[in-house]
Design a protein around this nucleic acid. Structure first.
Length: 921
RNA sequence: GCCCGGAUGGCGGAAUCGGUAGACGCGUUGGUCUCAAACACCAAUGUCCGAAAGGAUGUGCCGGUUCGACCCCGGCUCCGGGUACCA
């Protein structure tokens, strides 16, 4: 009987689905374990071979945990709002909901083929009104809350209103956009509009001004990804920076807690580091510099971590977007500044950070007075200062900051060294060490002491105050798009007002087109009657992360219509025990989710302060991408070999219309409407594409589908092969070569159970040699699964099967545990063999083999060499190692010992099962 | 630029605590089975010298620590992820 994976896989997949084998039901008698995958965006390209990598790993762990007696919650759903469906809708006029529906159906089909043990009764979709009702609900809660800094938690806005009406801002310590100060009297006399504006300053979900990539020609805001070299990827139109009022979430209020609570999470240190750096806590001081623009005098606030270097300030720098630019530009410099701002406007923030080697800037015409020395220094404007961090203005100390140094050298500004003996002729001295000089009262102090001393001085003399600054910015929460959650907000007399919760969900309206209006309004402006009680509704929609921030909670209680999650379900499942997903979410989703969870925790809706206890980052399965090269400002494309003669923009092209790096020109023209009338500059009659290894993703157009693998080799082979490919956490390029070996292994396994005449398994007692193979494997699989070292686990299976093959083992006592051990990895073949061995039902109800004294026949001994009381060297000497080999090992130990100390070996003791001692005098 | 990873044979990778580098699999070569192929099985396989025995060399580059370094430290190079509106 042959291993017929097609029949077997189909049979067991229907069995699981019919018997609802993996349905999770709250059961207080059993310990719970929640295993979660980062849910996919259902792209039109379908599931690619990179997606299942993490899903297979989490499925292995889920199945393993079930076999170990846990009540496992292992759900799946779809992050279904997103740009690609909208783009597709713009191109085709098809409603994104239809496209999404279709894509989800395809994803489900693909997922089912791989044999995952999901509880599909708990599926969620972020674009489902029954789901986004709770996204909108959470938004309204955030709108109706402010963050109390002293209580370190979110509180209802009504409490803030109460405080304002009694004492004004007196005694209020709340996270805010701008420090405000007013009396109760003032508050009580404010109009509704004024009060609304004041409260916006405190709400956790608030409206505020921010800078965005604006494409006037497309009439829309673009992501940095959609902008390349100052032009839109779609269409190639110019893009500029523009200020816009946007909904934002006051994530920054939670910065300290997001940082502190990282300590208790079982995440990798590298990931925690990324989050810590992203949150970017820095201690320093906010200082006031008097600035003079002609006769006008202003107090300008700057933030610095190096108050100790204030004596070395030789100039000040403003971010181009800073509100100070207007105030501090002198009439003579007006033209130069305007020209400079115009240049900078064309660049995205990321481009500005990347191009730090190109030094640009302009003198504002104003001067600032150093509060310590009284010296006047020029105020410059440069793109290396970012508006979003600190106050958007810095004091420049070129001697001790490399960016300031580069700027000073370029514009010939003075450099004053402040540390004894430091050499600043070639580069700045950034290290926080040495003894201060040229610094007045700080002279002679080590830097480490000078920093706090300087801040003390600043506070004492009213020049400024101690401040902790965070790099973490508030999250921009509105998008000028169609395919997202509508905001449950309407504008009553121009005042943003929440919809009553009985109106939720506020459903996405139908529109005639998915593009912005001619006047540049978002697509929702096209809806026929987008009003509530006659007042206009908010026209922007929520971003992708809105729906993905709390989805893990909804899985606990997905059909509840009266709460996001019931107290009972939340109390049982609590939070995610194991979360698997890519590192690309390290600073986006994983910060937003933690923020969202903490907010709900503050309000008492969830019982855990962190959403994800343990987190494993699966590596990327990389794809091989192809590029075409568009000549800037044209629709002409030049072949790879000739591109150096032109100024070009590199654009990803779908690998499915490229063969051996040669572009299928007709397919390319059909690929996107923008390229329909594209022209080409060919080499040797062909268009050659560039290539690169990078992340496999729909946006890179380099997707490979797993269906082919399932067709030819089966799901179990795909599962094993993806695990065998390399360490889970490491990136590796997809390569179908090598999959035969894994398939061969499964066939060999099958032949262990089935001969020509059917099942060959006997009830004979296993031999010690056979038990040894099994128990070596049990030990290995246990440690490997717990360590998520699945590639070595698969190798261990291969070795064990080869050994059993050599031993011609056919004993039930070996083969039955073997098939249970393998079942998390290759569930279909395992179920089939389990049934063949005479068991009814699913192998999921078996229990995972454990080490058991009766199986242990022989054990290897570890010998260690120790000298001076410290173990320095261990060597494995198996119990059955031949005598001469043991002697050889001992000789090599003697050799080693000779290198130690003066080479005098007192004695060597060799006792089997004990430590080898080499004592050196 | 900044933050976080990675680099080991022809290829994917193993070496889990500083102790025999290259497990396991792919590929390649030779062989067995077959009329032939497929399947399967056996053997060899880092590189260089050598008929062999054996020797030399070898974990991206330069340097250091150590009796001993793929592993630890310092300095680089290249590749990947993120960089706040891709999800």
């Amino acid at each position: 009987m042959e291993y017929d994976f097609r029949k077997i896989e189909k049979k067991w997949q229907s069995f699981w689905s019919e018997h609802q084998t993996f349905k999770a039901v709250e059961d207080p008698a059993k310990p719970k374990y929640y295993v979660l995958d980062m849910f996919p965006y259902p792209s039109g390209a379908g599931l690619h071979v990179g997606h299942p990598l993490g899903y297979i790993a989490s499925d292995i762990y889920s199945r393993y945990k079930r076999l170990c007696g846990f009540n496992v919650l292992h759900p799946m759903g779809y992050d279904a709002f997103g740009l690609p469906a909208e783009q597709y809708a713009i191109q085709t006029g098809k409603h994104p909901a239809l496209t999404t529906e279709k894509n989800i159906a395809r994803y489900r089909e693909q997922l089912d083929r791989i044999g995952f043990s999901y509880d599909w009764s708990r599926e969620v979709r972020t674009c489902d009104p029954a789901y986004y009702k709770w996204t909108q609900w959470a938004f309204l809660k955030m709108f109706d809350s402010y963050y109390d800094n002293s209580l370190r938690k979110a509180r209802p806005v009504s409490e803030l209103v109460g405080m304002f009406s009694r004492n004004g801002t007196e005694g209020v310590d709340a996270a805010c956009t701008k420090e405000l100060s007013f009396t109760a009297e003032r508050w009580n006399s404010m109009s509704d509009k004024e009060r609304s504006d004041v409260l916006m300053n405190y709400r956790i979900a608030y409206q505020g001004e921010t800078s965005v990539n604006w494409c006037p020609k497309l009439g829309t805001v673009l992501a940095n990804d959609e902008v390349k070299d100052g032009y839109s990827v779609r269409g190639g139109y110019p893009v500029e920076q523009k200020k816009m009022t946007q909904w934002q979430l006051r994530v920054s209020a939670y910065a300290e807690r997001l940082l502190d609570d990282l300590d208790d999470l079982a995440w990798t240190d590298s990931l925690k580091d990324m989050q810590r750096n992203w949150i970017g806590r820095s201690e320093g001081a906010e200082m006031v510099f008097k600035t003079y623009n002609g006769d006008n005098v202003y107090d300008m606030h700057i933030f610095t971590t190096r108050a100790d270097t204030v004596f070395g300030v030789t100039f000040m720098v403003l971010a181009p977007e800073s509100e100070w630019v207007e105030k501090l530009t002198s009439p003579e410099q007006k033209q130069a500044v305007a020209e400079y701002l115009n240049e900078v406007k064309k660049k995205t923030e990321r481009e500005r950070m990347t191009e730090t080697r190109k030094i640009t800037g302009v003198f504002s015409g104003s001067y600032a007075e150093n509060p310590m020395t009284g010296n006047r220094v020029p105020v410059w404007i440069s793109e290396y200062v970012l508006a979003g961090y600190g106050t958007g203005a810095i004091m420049a100390v070129p001697a001790h900051d490399s960016r300031d140094y580069a700027f000073a050298r370029h514009f010939n500004l003075p450099v004053i060294p402040l540390i004894e003996g430091c050499d600043v002729s070639e580069s700045s001295f950034d290290a926080k060490e040495g003894i201060m000089c040229n610094s007045g009262f700080l002279d002679g102090m080590p830097v480490k002491e000078a920093i706090p001393a300087a801040i003390d001085y600043v506070e004492k003399h009213g020049i400024g105050h101690r401040k902790v600054n965070f790099r973490l910015r508030d999250a921009i929460f509105s998008r000028q798009r169609y395919w997202g959650e509508p905001f449950p907000i309407y504008y009553k007399d121009g005042i943003p007002t929440p919809l009553p919760s009985s109106e939720l969900p506020l459903q996405l309206p139908e529109v005639d087109k998915y593009l912005p209006t001619e006047s540049g309004e978002p697509p929702l402006a096209r809806a026929a009657d987008w009003t509530y009680e006659g007042w206009p509704l908010e026209k922007s929609t929520m971003p992708g992360f809105a729906g993905s921030s709390a989805y893990y909670l909804r899985y606990m209680d997905p059909h509840n219509d009266s709460a996001l999650v019931s107290r009972e379900a939340d109390g049982y499942w609590r939070n995610v025990d194991l979360y698997i997903g890519g590192t690309e979410h390290a600073t986006g989703h994983l910060i937003y989710s933690r923020f969202w969870n903490k907010f709900l925790y503050d309000l008492g809706y969830v019982c855990e302060k962190e959403p994800f206890k343990r987190l494993i980052n699966q590596g990327m399965i990389q794809g091989r991408s192809n590029f075409v090269y568009r000549i800037v400002n044209t629709n002409r494309f030049v072949s790879y070999g000739l591109k150096d003669g032109y100024e070009t923009t590199e654009i990803h092209v779908d690998v499915n219309i490229v063969h051996n790096d040669r572009l299928d020109i007709e397919a390319f023209r059909k690929w996107m409407p923008d390229f329909a009338d594209a022209e080409f500059i060919l080499e040797n009659g062909e268009y050659i594409c560039g290539y690169a290894t990078e992340k496999m993703s729909k946006s890179m157009f380099n997707v490979v589908n797993p269906d082919m693998v399932c067709d030819t080799y089966g799901a179990d082979t795909l599962r094993l092969y993806e695990m065998f490919l390399g360490p889970l956490e490491q990136s590796k390029p997809w390569d179908t070569k090598g999959i035969d070996g894994v398939h061969r292994f499964l066939k060999r396994l099958w032949r262990l159970y089935y001969g020509k005449d059917g099942l060959v398994v006997t009830d004979q007692e296993p031999l010690p040699s056979e038990l040894k193979v099994l128990h070596k494997l049990i030990g290995k699989i246990h440690t490997d699964i717990e360590a998520f070292s699945f590639n070595t686990a698969v190798s261990a299976f291969m070795i064990a099967v080869n050994e059993l093959y050599d031993l011609k083992c056919s004993k039930r006592g070996i083969l039955e545990p073997l098939v249970i051990l393998l079942s998390p990895f290759a569930p279909h073949i395992s179920e089939e063999l389990w049934e063949a061995l005479g068991h009814k039902g699913s192998i999921s109800f078996a229990s995972f083999p454990e080490y058991d004294g009766k199986y242990v026949v022989e054990a290897s001994c570890t010998y260690a060499v120790s000298f001076n009381g410290k173990t320095r060297f261990t060597v494995d000497l198996p119990k059955d190692m031949p005598k001469d080999e043991v002697e050889a090992q001992v000789r090599s130990l003697e050799q080693t010992a000779k290198y130690v100390g003066d080479g005098n070996i007192l004695k060597i003791i060799v006792v089997p099962g004990k430590i080898v001692n080499i004592v050196v005098k």
